[in-house]
């Protein structure tokens, strides 16, 4: 399968002001990620992994450098355009699931479809399909607080993939799950992403998770490095 560059980061800098002092998180970072590729991103706490996800998803803007996702230069977009870009092209999965507590499992999935302007019929059908894909058809009408952590994470995966985004960003996907559930969830996510031909960027501390990726990158001192061999954390 022919692969093209889906994400292209070039000389990205991001500095924060904290208590009157500058703190450079990303220092001239560059990254090329192909369509359909799965990359695991490792790094110590505070190394800037979340900042990198924010920059790639258009939540945060770099001070300098270029961020191109699916051929769109994010640095040139307005706040509203970035929101619409995120809505259409990105699927987010978090360690703490971040489901909407006042919506049922089905509605959580339907929300992104509605946001993307799908017809009511399509919303219903895709929600149902996604629920079945994560094996939660029976929990469709349950609210998040009535679900286990593993179930909530599966709903989060279904929500992230429902609108077939080009890029899925997963931040500590298995952080709050036990090893066995974590593995199941990870396999499910990888399968679904690969079925849709999507691109997956996994931020993780887990070596086991990292090993399942096509490539492993390490973020250290504001720069990315290709990781090979054993991991220190």
């Amino acid at each position: 399968m022919a692969r093209s560059e889906y994400i292209l980061l070039d000389d990205v800098h991001r500095t924060y002001q904290e208590a009157g002092r500058s703190h450079a998180v990303l220092k001239g970072l560059s990254l090329a990620m192909n369509s359909g590729e799965i990359i695991a991103l490792l790094g110590r706490s505070g190394s800037g992994k979340s900042t990198l996800l924010n920059v790639i998803s258009g939540i945060d803007k770099p001070d300098q450098g270029q961020v191109v996702v699916n051929g769109i230069d994010l640095t040139a977009l307005s706040e509203r355009e970035l929101t619409l870009f995120r809505r259409e092209h990105i699927g987010f999965i978090y360690q703490f699931f971040n489901l909407i507590p006042t919506l049922t499992a089905r509605e959580n999935i339907a929300l992104v479809l509605e946001l993307n302007g799908y017809s009511p019929t399509a919303v219903r059908e895709i929600s149902q399909t996604m629920l079945a894909a994560v094996d939660l058809s029976q929990a469709a009408d349950r609210f998040p607080d009535r679900m286990s952590g593993g179930e909530q994470q599966r709903v989060a995966i279904a929500r992230a993939l429902a609108h077939s985004p080009g890029l899925v960003l997963a931040d500590e996907l298995t952080g709050t799950l036990d090893a066995e559930t974590g593995q199941l969830v990870l396999k499910l996510l990888q399968k679904l992403v690969s079925d849709q031909g999507g691109t997956l960027l996994l931020v993780t501390h887990s070596l086991a998770v990292a090993k399942t990726a096509d490539r492993v990158l390490t973020l250290e001192d504001g720069q990315l490095a290709e990781q090979e061999g054993s991991f220190a954390w």
């Binding site: 939540i59 995120r86 809505r87 971040n98």
Partner: peptide
């Protein structure tokens, strides 16, 4: 605030 933050992440605009 948390829920609104999730909305924002999912692509709900400020407006």
């Amino acid at each position: 605030r948390r829920t609104l933050g999730i909305y924002r992440t999912l692509g709900v605009s400020r407006g």
